[in-house]
Design a protein around this nucleic acid. Structure first.
Lengths: 67, 67
DNA sequence: TGGAAATGCGCAATATAGTGCGCAATTTAT
DNA sequence: ATAAATTGCGCACTATATTGCGCATTTCCA
């Protein structure tokens, strides 16, 4: 599984949004967005949901392949 | 997307684990596990990860289908 | 059906996520 | 080359997740 932070950053860039944009659109602070994208954060499901939703994604539980 | 809390509860039951078992195996408190399964919680990604992993699941960001 | 296991939840304490501010560093655009 | 935009991060404060404890309720079998 690819790191969530990287997925978020890539999707945001693909949509040509700045961290600022993403923060405002999803209703979380810029500080939190940068923290998450830099992997230096342990976001709540609620926060992750808001960001994911804004990016056209959603948080899901999927079957783990191995290990 | 089905509610994460329900997915967790169903998977736990399928594996014939008690909330107590799941709590111990994943390293989070029983109080937290019950809170999550009852949907009265907003777990951190870390906590969700621990539980998901124990159940053979993983937290993922997937494309949202609609809305 | 009775006793044990499992679940649900209130509460207070502790740990940690979320935030705004400020500024430096980096990237992008003109 | 320079200005403007974007990103990164330290800090202190506030909000909230996590926890243990205790007990009530429900579920499950023997």
């Amino acid at each position: 599984m690819e790191k969530l932070s990287k997925i978020i950053e890539e999707k945001r860039q693909k949509l040509r949004l700045s961290q600022q944009d993403l923060a405002e659109m999803s209703g979380v602070s810029l500080r939190t967005v940068t923290g998450i994208e830099n992997g230096e954060a342990n976001p709540s499901l609620d926060t992750l949901d808001k960001i994911a939703y804004t990016l056209g994604l959603e948080v899901a539980l999927t079957e783990r392949v191995k290990h």
